[in-house]
Nucleic acid binder design. Structure first.
Lengths: 215, 215
DNA sequence: GTCTATATCCAGATAGAC
DNA sequence: GTCTATCTGGATATAGAC
């Protein structure tokens, strides 16, 4: 690597560090004030810089949201992807939902950004969005471990997981009213997948456009 | 009733009509621009009045959101409460979920206001919130029709319904990717409730605080 | 890259005349 | 009740000196 190259790398890493510092300030703010309440003025003050300086690192407020979305999606994919420490395929499903709700419940603003459409006019870029797709593929694999591959069952599974998370966060934040039902949910779902009635499956298809990260 | 009383009624009904007109303008705006994008300036222009006049009818912006919440909750309760035209208890469940997703999918902004926490600092008043509780009681009754009364099963049911609605709206707005799975969901749920495994129930309890309308 | 200073605009809310 | 006019403060974003 050339001296010039190294200098460029150094500068670039400095720049990246500054970006990360700004994003950390942003997370702290939305944690306290709510996702929609983020303002560049507060953000700059929090990060110990001035508003114009923020624009040296991000083109716009939406660009900041997009970078935050990218971080969140990355964290989400990583959180879901750490190896599942069991040989029981059913336990892998249970643990997967557990991690899902754990991740979402930990930071409400992050959950809003990632899974709800709360910022008018904001849509994540394809790059920021990519890790969320990986995470969905992971869910598909955990189901396949249980011999469940039907796309309709995958859709039912995502709805199940989403509903559980949503109810837990909305109606019992910090509690375990729905979390403790995870085992029952998995029982119910697996039982249904294996039921004779389910064997007589009809096939349908329909296109879909997507809002928010897949789950 | 006295002449004076009638005059007061008339004035009051005029006032109510004006309030409703403002709220209609508000709904039109949030439908087009998003719930969080509502501004009193645009609202006034849309309603054919000026900003200060809005304050003759509502104390603040939050009061407008609250009135909108009240309308939405009322509509929701009414929508869910119209008699179910079948004797089959299972079909009542199916129809109930169908109505739920239909109501939510019809207007995204209304769904956000009613079921998500997207406006920083806004919480509905107890009065506006009341109809939502009635709606939840309705769900409980539809389950009871099927011999399902366990509170934990009610929680599972609400999570199921919520998840289905959420996935449908977020990932296939205007489509039927999850709607067409309603029958399967009900099959799965009822089958689980009636399963022998479920008979050996353990009892637990935990308190809960609530955010958003119950569902 | 970082600042001061400022542009431009919009927000929610109020004063006071009619 | 409704208006004009205005207050106060916030927003995002940019110009230009250093």
């Amino acid at each position: 690597m050339s001296k010039g190259g190294a200098a460029i790398d150094w500068r670039e890493s400095r720049r990246q560090a500054a970006r990360v510092a700004i994003l950390e300030a942003a997370w702290a703010l939305v944690r306290e004030e709510g996702l929609a309440a983020l303002s560049l003025r507060d953000l700059a003050r929090r990060a110990g810089i001035t508003t114009p300086t923020v624009y040296a690192y991000f083109d716009s407020k939406h660009a900041i949201y997009d970078a935050m979305f990218g971080q969140a999606a990355e964290d989400f994919a990583a959180h879901m992807a750490v190896p599942y420490d069991t040989d029981d395929p059913r336990e892998v499903l249970v643990a997967g939902v557990g991690r899902f709700v754990e991740f979402c419940a930990r930071e409400f603003a992050r959950y809003q950004l990632l899974f709800q459409r709360t910022i008018p006019g904001f849509e994540p870029s394809a790059e920021s969005y990519a890790p969320a797709i990986r995470a969905l593929a992971g869910a598909r694999e955990r189901l396949a471990l249980n011999g469940i591959t039907d796309p309709e069952l995958l859709d039912m599974w995502t709805a199940l997981s989403t509903g559980l998370v949503d109810q837990q966060i909305s109606n019992d934040p910090g509690g375990d009213r729905w979390v403790r039902l995870i085992d029952d949910f998995v029982d119910m779902f697996v039982m249904y997948c294996r039921s004779p009635k389910r064997v007589l499956t009809r096939v349908k298809k329909s296109p879909s456009r997507t809002k928010g990260a897949p789950r």
